[in-house]
């Protein structure tokens, strides 16, 4: 598929960049793969419905829907700070997924929850791997593709037997790819908004993003400009929106996905938005 074919919203030209240096990333991977954890691998299709919970601000409006789905038997999978929000609400995650390589993210795997599966990217910082040492279920996956500098290292260590989990720049989109690899096909997304709501970029404190620059983004479907809406976003919100819509374009016929809340991603999915006008 060409770059033009993959463009999901006209007017958005985004390029993702890592928040950690290549050297740090390689050092993290070098350390992580020697910690004796099993690799995430392709599994048979699973019937379970997955509630994938990020820490976007719409969570406060959708808590009831989330609780209802969990009561009906859906599995709760959290990413980053959503883990803490769910624990505060007495909701027990079945799995927690983290990909960020910075040391401060070790807080996202504390406290230990019995029975929870920790699915961590090999690029995660050693402090995070230290935190999960000795826990029953810890799995490793690799957020890299064939032309990544870590490929040689992984090829050598795993004798060529590893799978790259590609797709997107944020944990939300990578989490969907990991869960798809694990066989899950039915997703309900909560707190994955890709926008600021009120003055909140996350529902839990995330000081790493307190100094992000905000933009006003007008988004809507070309055929129905009257449906356009203006969202307050950061750069990574825009990239995540593009990543998520690309993921759905590529994988949409393999999964069922409901996006809950009133965030940008929910709006874009529900209206088929395809046009963005930056900086209104």
């Amino acid at each position: 598929m060409s770059d033009m074919d993959m463009r999901v919203i006209v007017g958005l030209e985004m390029e993702g960049r890592l928040n950690t240096s290549d050297d740090d990333m390689l050092a993290n991977i070098q350390s992580a793969i020697r910690r004796q954890h099993p690799q995430v691998r392709q599994q048979d299709p699973q019937d379970d419905r997955i509630c994938l919970v990020g820490s976007g601000p719409s969570l406060k409006d959708t808590e009831g829907e989330l609780v209802q789905l969990i009561r009906e038997g859906a599995k709760l999978v959290t990413v980053n700070g959503a883990y803490h929000w769910c624990l505060q609400k007495n909701l027990k995650p079945s799995a927690q997924i983290v990909i960020d390589a910075r040391a401060a993210n070790a807080r996202f795997v504390e406290p230990s929850v019995p029975g929870c599966i920790y699915i961590l990217a090999s690029q995660c910082h050693p402090r995070l791997w230290d935190a999960v040492e000795g826990r029953e279920n810890v799995w490793i996956f690799h957020t890299i593709n064939a032309d990544n500098a870590a490929k040689t290292m992984l090829d050598e260590f795993y004798m060529g037997h590893w799978h790259g989990v590609v797709g997107g720049t944020t944990v939300a989109t990578r989490a969907m790819v990991v869960l798809r690899m694990l066989g899950y096909l039915r997703f309900d997304l909560f707190g994955i908004d890709s926008c600021v709501m009120g003055d909140q970029h996350h529902i839990v404190p995330q000081p790493e993003n307190d100094h992000d620059k905000f933009y006003q983004l007008k988004v809507g479907p070309t055929a129905h400009p009257e449906l356009s809406r203006i969202f307050t976003v950061t750069g990574w919100h825009c990239k995540q929106l593009e990543d998520m819509l690309q993921f759905m374009r590529v994988n949409g016929d393999q999964i069922l996905c409901n996006v809950h809340g009133d965030g940008l991603i929910a709006y874009a999915v529900n209206t088929g938005a395809d046009l963005a006008i930056d900086d209104v």
Binding site: Q36, Q39, Y158
Partner: peptide
């Protein structure tokens, strides 16, 4: 891995899929 850890020092453990 966990069974071996009960009886030995597991110096290396690599999951190479199959």
């Amino acid at each position: 891995r966990d069974s071996m850890r009960e009886i030995a020092e597991v110096v290396e453990a690599r999951d190479v899929m199959a």
